[in-house]
Design a protein around this nucleic acid. Structure first.
Length: 258
DNA sequence: ATGGTTGCCTCGCAA
């Protein structure tokens, strides 16, 4: 069994002790991290390696940044989402580990509406669809995990009305997410859980965590070859309740060995 | 109604 998880840590420096505790207690085999908020050279390689993980990192000053951690070596790393050579934002990283093709995704937020930021989000989602389709042609088990910045359905939100003018819940954003599913990818959480109001993000503002006013925007998408092996999935709320927590909490799934 | 919170590191931006 291989255990995979994804977590937007909102600064790996600010979150390093919580990340360390969680890697030791939750013991995932593969981890997709987002919002490192550090340059590639500043990634804490020694600490991560001392916990038993290989790491592939694409960083950037101040914003964005993604990493792939694995208890086995990571091979054939791709450090950019194809389709736009001008795109300098550190939002995509892909590698092979445990015999799986794994992508770490930090999809653009897209706010505010009516700006180039929303256009960038939709263009990025078109590029992701093209990449996801190309990966299917390999017929390998693929896991594309990360902060998608999309609320797929009204039940993935405490109050759809509060988000109707937000890029995360726009019809165009939701349709682009459905197009990924329509390729044949499976939402690892929703495949095994029907309950509404299961969240992965709670805003820092207004006591959202304590009132459980959250949204489900972090997702693990599985190719058919991976989905056939899906044994369990979930959301680990424990790290969100800690002092100086990230505003996101980890999501995870377990795949049976072939 | 445009509030308030966090992390970065500039005196604002992004989320």
């Amino acid at each position: 069994m291989v255990k995979l998880a994804s977590w937007n840590v909102n600064s790996i420096k600010a979150r390093l002790h919580i990340l360390r505790d969680w890697l030791e207690s939750f013991a995932p085999d593969v981890v997709m991290l987002q919002e490192l908020k550090c340059q590639t050279d500043a990634f804490p390689h020694l600490e991560i390696e001392s916990l038993g993980y290989h790491a592939a990192v694409v960083g950037q000053k101040t914003y964005n940044g993604v990493a792939l951690l694995s208890k086995q070596p990571i091979e054939d790393v791709v450090e950019r989402l194809p389709g736009d050579p001008e795109d300098e934002q550190a939002r995509y990283l892909e590698g092979t580990t445990f015999g799986l093709r794994v992508g770490a995704i930090y999809l653009p937020n897209g706010n505010p509406l009516g700006t180039e930021k929303f256009d960038y989000k939709l263009a990025w989602m078109r590029r992701l669809r093209d990449r996801a389709a190309a990966l299917l042609e390999s017929e390998q088990a693929v896991v594309l995990g990360g902060d998608y910045n999309v609320i797929p359905e009204p039940e993935d939100c405490y109050d759809p009305k509060a988000w109707e003018k937000d890029a995360l819940f726009q019809p165009e954003s939701r349709a682009a997410f459905r197009r990924l599913l329509n390729l044949g990818y499976v939402d690892a959480f929703r495949a095994l859980h029907r309950e509404p109001q299961a969240y992965t993000f709670w805003d820092y503002q207004g006591g959202a965590w304590h009132a459980d006013l959250g949204i489900r925007i972090d997702h693990l998408l599985l190719s058919p070859q991976a989905a056939d092996r899906l044994a369990a999935s979930g959301i680990d709320r424990e790290p969100r309740g800690r002092e100086k927590a990230s505003d996101h909490t980890p999501i995870w799934c377990q795949l049976e060995d072939r």
